[in-house]
């Protein structure tokens, strides 16, 4: 769907992007991650043809990106705004027509989305009458009105309450099911884990990681397992003896715990279960994968970089 090849961009001696190459497949949700100032917004602007790269190119469906392709994209920037004095409907008409829709199509689409979000009575409201979260919804609707094949969403969940966060996430998943491609730039790592198929991490203008979410987590696992059990913690620790190491524990109730355990020597997960059976009542056991939050911090933590140096 989208191919970014060797894209570099600098702003008067400040290198914003350094030889970035990415490939985003059709029908996937792709997480674009990175700390503030890493270059994500610059990359997104290049994809949207708002700015031009110094080097490299962007292809969409095999073609070099041109202005003609812009109507295939729906872009919700992080720094987004609306004209405060315009009504919701006028806004949709203006932005929808800019994206190539006819007036009639905009009205039909707007009808659909307002019904879907159960906000049909907002149509004639002026933007200044809406709360921040309500305005965010209008922005989201204006972004998807023209049914773009590629959606680029920069922090789409910020400003929403938890109910609406779930609503938008659900919407993204539905769009993916309809074959849309979505680039999601966010600092909300939980949502990356939940809805992204793949992700790339940009740090200090360079791409430092790319892959499937599960593979990224798999690659960084530490061999830690979690055991949810009933019984005595003393009995549990005694059973571990010297073959396993208790790294963490969470008390769920008087005799209910989740314990985190690491293997020592050549001991395996089966050995752990064998040691515990009969000592405590195991309710669940699973391998602990690092969260994307941990992966993110691990990869961009400046202290870690200093230590490595």
């Amino acid at each position: 769907m989208l191919e970014i090849q060797h894209v570099s961009k600098s702003f008067f001696r400040n290198l914003a992007l350094d030889d970035i190459s990415l490939r985003i497949e059709a029908g996937e949700i792709f997480g674009l991650l990175g700390p503030n100032g890493a270059g994500k917004t610059t990359l997104i602007r290049i994809i949207n043809r708002i700015i031009e790269p110094d080097n490299g190119y962007v292809r969409i469906n095999g073609d070099l990106m041109t202005q003609h392709h812009q109507s295939m994209i729906g872009y919700l920037p992080e720094e987004r705004g609306l004209y405060r004095t315009m009504t919701v409907e006028d806004h949709a008409l203006f932005l929808g027509q800019l994206r190539g829709l006819s007036k009639r199509d905009v009205k039909m689409q707007l009808e659909y989305w307002l019904e879907k979000f159960d906000i049909a009575d907002w149509r004639k409201k002026r933007i200044e009458e809406l709360s921040k979260g309500m305005a965010q919804k209008v922005q989201f609707i204006c972004t998807v009105l023209h049914e773009p094949k590629l959606l680029i969403l920069d922090e789409p969940l910020s400003g929403f309450d938890p109910v609406n966060v779930e609503l938008i996430k659900q919407e993204l998943v539905e769009m993916k099911a309809k074959g849309k491609t979505i680039i999601l730039s966010t600092h909300n790592m939980k949502s990356v884990e939940e809805i992204c198929d793949r992700a790339a991490l940009i740090h200090q203008s360079k791409k430092i990681m790319e892959g499937r979410i599960s593979e990224i987590q798999e690659a960084r696992k530490t061999g830690e397992f979690a055991i949810k059990f009933r019984g005595s913690m003393i009995a549990f620790v005694t059973a571990l003896w010297t073959s396993f190491e208790l790294t963490d524990k969470e008390i769920l109730g008087d005799d209910k715990f989740i314990a985190r355990v690491k293997m020592r020597g050549d001991n395996s997960f089966e050995d752990l279960l064998t040691a515990l059976i009969g000592q405590v009542k195991i309710e669940a056991a699973w391998e602990v994968l690092p969260s994307m939050q941990d992966v993110f911090i691990d990869m961009v933590n400046p202290r870690k970089e200093a230590n490595n140096a």
């Binding site: 708002i50 109507s71 919700l76 004209y83 932005l95 800019l98």
Partner: peptide, 16 residues
């Protein structure tokens, strides 16, 4: 105003 309320970014994704 378009700069300060940042709608400019949305517009520039559609128009030169």
């Amino acid at each position: 105003l378009e700069k300060s309320n940042r709608i400019i970014e949305v517009l520039l994704a559609s128009v030169r």
